[in-house]
């Protein structure tokens, strides 16, 4: 899922300066799980905006705002409230926010920062393990992605900067290379680490991504 964190109220108010009325859109999937854009957070945001003098014309939680046609349908259903508003604040990831922006004609603002594609370990514990680089290499590294989990995306071994097994960038994070080494040692596959891996093909993950699977019918 996409892990988000809510922007500060100051930043939100700064972005929406001059806009008096706001309609709030939340997300029923990822942002609900992250507690950044579910029913509860939308209601709390509404109260905060009212306290700061805004008029909240309404709110809706779209099951998955990243589904563009569904988003258009839900916004059409809320046409009356949206027509009266100067701004829409979206409590979802950047994908959901843009989906709303493309479906609406008023100004649309993100209420969250999108952090990463995350795994959920347990309640409110999110970890980035894949950065959708376009060319999966984890098969060579014991099932652990060095592109994402090494802060320098190194493909041929550790940078040497880790301290007590922790990453030099953040001592709360494990050094991915030590994890890869331990894992491959356990599976007697350390030999695979001795070969020189070529430079990564970054063209495989060029933004913006686009995939159209012609011929596949729902």
């Amino acid at each position: 899922m996409i892990i988000t964190k809510q922007k500060s109220l100051d930043e939100i108010l700064g972005m929406m300066e001059g806009k008096k009325s706001v309609f709030i859109v939340g997300c029923g999937e990822c942002a609900t799980t992250c507690r950044t854009g579910g029913e509860k957070e939308a209601a709390e945001m509404s109260a905060k905006l009212i306290e700061k003098g805004k008029t909240v014309t309404g709110s809706v939680i779209i099951t998955a705002p990243c589904l563009e046609l569904d988003t258009r349908r839900v916004l059409r259903q809320n046409k009356d409230a949206i027509e009266k508003t100067e701004a829409i604040l979206v409590l979802a990831c950047g994908a959901g926010t843009q989906s709303v922006a493309e479906a609406a004609i008023c100004n649309v603002y993100p209420g969250c920062d999108s952090l990463f594609l995350g795994n959920v370990f347990r309640h409110q514990h999110f970890y980035e393990k894949c950065s959708t680089c376009g060319e999966c290499v984890i098969g060579y590294y014991g099932g652990i992605c060095p592109v994402t989990r090494c802060s320098k995306s190194l493909l041929n071994g550790p940078c040497g900067g880790s301290m007590q097994g922790k990453c030099e960038v953040d001592n709360k994070k494990e050094c991915a290379w030590i994890m890869i080494y331990e894992r491959m040692k356990k599976t007697n596959s350390l030999d695979n680490l001795t070969k020189v891996f070529p430079a990564k093909n970054h063209s495989a993950g060029t933004s913006p991504g686009m995939v159209i699977n012609a011929g596949i019918r729902g």
Binding site: N156, E168, F197
Partner: peptide, 28 residues
């Protein structure tokens, strides 16, 4: 060498490049 991560330096907001690693650059 790989180099320290920009987050440890005096331009922590810089984009870390690391297009190549030290082994790949050596080979290049």
């Amino acid at each position: 060498m790989t180099g320290d991560h920009p987050k440890l330096g005096n331009h922590p907001d810089a984009k870390p490049v690391f297009d190549l690693d030290s082994v790949q650059l050596t080979k290049a």
